[in-house]
Amino acid sequence: MHRLEVVMAVHRPIGYWLVELDRLINQRFDEDLASGRLTRRRWQVTHSLADGPQRADDIRHALDTFWTDDSEWPTELAGLVADGLVSDDGGMLSLTAEGRITHDQAFVRIAERRRQFAEGISDEQFAATVRTLQRMVENLGGAPNSEIGEPQRAR
């Protein structure tokens, strides 16, 4: 890396790095899932069922944040059932044998991507980064503009 590139990288604000990291995480995970004929939503449902059968309502509620509109859940569920990945026995969902294989293969790809993601970062550094991001979210999560004052230190 050239000196100018290093200087430019250092001066980029945290928002840049958060957006770029989010973009890369989504892009790489979507690539990994697509290679197993899964979408992010299908992965979330199959992964939720990996430990055993669950009620459809519980899965829907647990993943509610990810649905952009009310029609997504029934469409995704119907697709998973039609493709033979999930069985629906009166509202009790479970992975089929094919669903288990599809999930497990995707899990291996995702585990490898997560290892790549954290390469060169110690467990302590990773935990500290997560704690720092969590704290930033907590700091901004409940602070309306009127409560924001002058910064106490440079960020």
Rank of each mutant, 00 (worst) to 15 (best):
Q116A: 14
G91V: 11
R23G: 02
Q152R: 13
S71F: 02
Q27M: 09
D83P: 04
G15D: 13
R115I: 14
S71P: 00
N145F: 15
P13A: 05
R155E: 14
E72H: 02
D30R: 04
G52P: 01
R37F: 08
D57V: 09
S48M: 13
R41M: 11
I121L: 08
R40C: 02
H47T: 13
A97Y: 14
A50L: 03
A118E: 06
G99Q: 07
E124F: 04
R109G: 08
Q116E: 15
E72I: 01
D58G: 11
S94C: 06
E119Q: 10
D70Q: 11
G149P: 01
M92C: 14
V7T: 10
D64Q: 13
M92Y: 14
L80P: 02
T65E: 07
L49V: 01
W43A: 01
P151W: 10
E76P: 00
Q134M: 08
F29W: 02
F66V: 00
I148N: 06
P151K: 10
T75P: 00
L80S: 00
F126S: 10
D88G: 03
H2S: 14
S122Q: 02
D64T: 06
I14K: 14
V137R: 09
H103K: 07
R37Q: 11
A118V: 07
S48N: 12
Q27V: 06
L85Y: 08
I110Q: 09
D88S: 04
R131M: 05
I14C: 09
H47G: 13
E147G: 12
T68I: 08
D22I: 06
A78Y: 03
G141I: 10
F66R: 00
T132K: 09
E76N: 07
G99D: 08
L63P: 00
D32A: 15
N139D: 15
M92K: 15
S122G: 03
L77R: 01
E20N: 09
R3P: 04
V6N: 07
R42K: 15
Q152M: 11
V7D: 08
D22H: 10
V130C: 06
L24P: 03
T129K: 05
R3H: 11
A56R: 02
T75W: 02
V86C: 03
D69C: 05
R115G: 08
A127T: 08
Q44N: 15
L77P: 00
L140G: 15
V7F: 11
F117H: 08
R135N: 05
V130F: 07
R37D: 12
L49H: 00
S146V: 14
R60P: 00
I121T: 07
G79I: 04
V108S: 10
A82W: 05
A62N: 02
